[in-house]
Amino acid sequence: MSIILDHVNYIYSRGTSDEVKALDDISFEIKDGDFIGLIGHTGSGKSTLVQHLDGLLKATSGHIYYNGEDIYDKGYNLKSLRSKVGLVFQYPEHQLFEEDVFKDVCFGPKNIGLTEGEAEIAAYQALKAVKLPEELFYVSPFDLSGGQKRRVAIAGVLAMEPEVLVLDEPTAGLDPEGRDEILGLVKQLHDEEGITIILVSHSMEDVADYVHHIIVMDKGRIHMNGTPKEVFWHASDLERIGLAAPRVTYIMRKLKQAGYNVDTTATTLSEAADSVLGAVRL
């Protein structure tokens, strides 16, 4: 079970003066149970890429295989693909429309053909999973706070019980607390439910703390592909394309220069803390 992208190209507004090559020869594989971070500068093609995973955009050329099947084959059921690959858009709270939260979360499961009862069970579980207090289930989604709305929107996708969850900038516009909540939730979905996660972000801190694997995009191409340690090792390379390594990595390098024997490949705060403590004790 995996997603394979094979030389995918995508061109926006083909044949007009504002033709843009958004994706340029993208090939990679996402294995079952992966936790992938997709990072890149604004306009690097991240959002375009994730819309391909769901079959919402069709590649100008190239192939995408989901569990061994080419999703561009004639007769391939895109609707079932969309139920298996859940895509949470940027600012997903802007898609809420129903009278109450519960009905809104039921929208997805009903669309993929579940009965009323099944849909309600799925919606209930999804809302529980995102930890929305039960007293908010039957209020209008427009009366919720920003962070709550976002959790409801994520529940709307989760209720379809996807195997792969793609989140496009899920922390944009949230305060640090909201950010930790959402990312913690995503991590829990991966660890406990075994859902494959693709996290799109331009925040290195978001990515470094959670993902196992990072794909760096620049100008529609894959710039780097590796573990966080491998990718953040090339900090100056990242800076050249408008990104950076996590702040702790820089601090560790400064400490090393100052003569402390610390691990400069640390990418998360806890790793760094352990390494610093170790160096100080010595």
């Binding site: 819309q51 769901d54 919402l56 609707k79 969309r82 139920s83 859940g86 895509l87 949470v88 858009f89 997903p92 802007h94 898609q95 809420l96 429309f97 929208f107 997805g108 669309n111 993929i112 709307g156 996708v157 379809m160």
Partner: peptide, 28 residues
Amino acid sequence: KAQQARGADFESGGMIRRAKAMVPLLVP
């Protein structure tokens, strides 16, 4: 696209079904 990702279908069905399918688009 966001609603399509949630399985919404804007293209098939008769007039009434299509009109109903517009609600998740028009409200937001």
